[in-house]
Design a protein around this nucleic acid. Sequence first.
DNA 1: TGGATTTGCTTAATCGTTTGTGCTGATCAA
DNA 2: TTGATCAGCACAAACGATTAAGCAAATCCA
Lengths: 346, 346
Amino acid sequence: MEKKVSIKDIAKKLGVSAALVSYVLNNKEKEARVGLEMAERIRHTARELNYQPNLIARSLRSGRTKTIGLIVADISNPFFSNIARTIEDEASLNNYTVIFGSSDENAEKSQTLINTLIKRQVDGLIIAPAENTSPQLQVLSDRGFPYVLIDRYFNDLTANTVRINNYQASFKAVTHLYERGYRRIAMVAYKTKLPHMEDRKRGFLGALQKFGLPVMENGLMESSYENISSDVAGIMQTLLDNTENRPDSFLFATNSLAINGLKEINKRKLVVPKDLGIISFDETEAFDFFYCPLTYINQSTDRIGKEAVRILMQQLESKDKNKTEKMDTAQLVIDAQLVVQRSCGE
Amino acid sequence: MEKKVSIKDIAKKLGVSAALVSYVLNNKEKEARVGLEMAERIRHTARELNYQPNLIARSLRSGRTKTIGLIVADISNPFFSNIARTIEDEASLNNYTVIFGSSDENAEKSQTLINTLIKRQVDGLIIAPAENTSPQLQVLSDRGFPYVLIDRYFNDLTANTVRINNYQASFKAVTHLYERGYRRIAMVAYKTKLPHMEDRKRGFLGALQKFGLPVMENGLMESSYENISSDVAGIMQTLLDNTENRPDSFLFATNSLAINGLKEINKRKLVVPKDLGIISFDETEAFDFFYCPLTYINQSTDRIGKEAVRILMQQLESKDKNKTEKMDTAQLVIDAQLVVQRSCGE
DNA sequence: TGGATTTGCTTAATCGTTTGTGCTGATCAA
DNA sequence: TTGATCAGCACAAACGATTAAGCAAATCCA
């Protein structure tokens, strides 16, 4: 491997000091009073040797890596990979790059990831936090480390957050089902204490109450994250194979739950929307792809990603300029859209 | 923001030199003959102050960042995000982290990404190369910079590669369609000179020839990457709305092509597999989710990711040990599996 | 002409870690 | 008693870039 060319190599070749080269390549020739001719020669030589600045060295000096860390539950989940893509683009516009990691909804992995990224000196973090990670985040807050939460949040933690109005979204979904004539509405959610999921459940229950619908027996079921496939299979068995007491519609709290649930529905030859109305949270190609395109709650991953980066950049800027006072935390609640397709009837 | 604690802080607190602290925290007390008691005190203080080593500083010294760069066409495409997840996990096992970027099949963006990642001193790259980027990669090779190509390759470039046997895969797909009685087989591919795509086309044509089937008029259509939605819509219009000369089956060269194509098929109320047999490259949740689960060519993103990291790690190791001779390049061709579901009849 | 200013560059410190070398005092063998 | 050995630590340079401070020569002004 060829030795990388450094500022010193340029300096040596021209018989000048490294400082001079640095000034020129950083366009500080004016302040540093570098001669016009010399500046030209330095630039020329830099191009000639294909000089690429060592950002590691620069980072060490400046204390800033121009890198942000992204922690999600699973980068292979389309919801998160879409957000990742937006974050990548937005970061790139600000001359930042992104290091990512998947927590698998596991608090321990989350802590490991946070530590790793901090050791790597990322300037800030964007995190879709897992359950029970509130203390980890509190430590970050206490240290004044910049981060933005996406998708999820904690009641006992004041932090920058970008998320949707989960309660309203669920409420809207149930309202839609109700208006389309469904009365026996069941919900399949994750078994977790994460508030965004609790909100979705509460929104569901709240809407049922508003319409005077009783909560069905097993009307609100919960799957684990780890065994989603078998858990949802069990849930659907409970709900669908009890023919005299079967729901007429489902609200799924995430795309993965919907996909697993619909597989079970298909297995039983139940037809959407005739036999069952369906609404799911999250967008994914698979929803449009269903024989009867799904009505879903669109979280606008684009918006979430953009806002998260914007807020993080603000925090980083304010940290640079203003060492003393801390910025206010931003709490951005995005209005989720119900995208009506055909899974609740026409 | 609290000042980060460095090795010097620990040293100062104990009234010893920074070197001593470094030796202990790197478990080199034996070689450096550090006193047992002192080692204990250093370790204790490090824990007490919650010392986290600054990896940027370490990297500057060592010349190794323990970071790999990942360049794919689009991280939000499930094919790539699945690979990304595997790469993340494998890298993590080797104490590496991953920086990623999306090239959008654009050679210029690719060059920018490569430069950015190299400036950030990544130890190696894993790349799903875009069209016309062979010269960029040749430069890497000439400089002896370690990288591994995934999914795609170039005929004029000798490089480490992990990919499937595209020709065989296409051939197998057509054979399957033929055996199920389909005779008017069309293919929808990308308009690109990337050899992996050419291979898929050649495999398609080769199989037709073997079975003595003529290539239909418009039997091999190509979509651009940028306007895939409208392009595929046009293609499907050409093929499907010409009723007397309609194909009886389709081979889609990627998941995105299939998804766009099937939307058009659905619009026209054509039923799979009765009216049309379907096979697609790539796996995605959406395929299982179709009313008639798709038969597809499984590229095993897991295998690709794992092997790519393994090969890259080998290259990095050999570079460390053996500065002079270069390692042989590894060309790994994985056998793609045809996963038979129901889209070509039972 | 002589002091002040400007021009054009160099020196050196710094970021945090690593690691080869060197120093001091204790222990040991003869 | 003396020279060698060794334990236990400190010193200092290096990685590559940035930047405040300094210095000599050229130029300016009166």
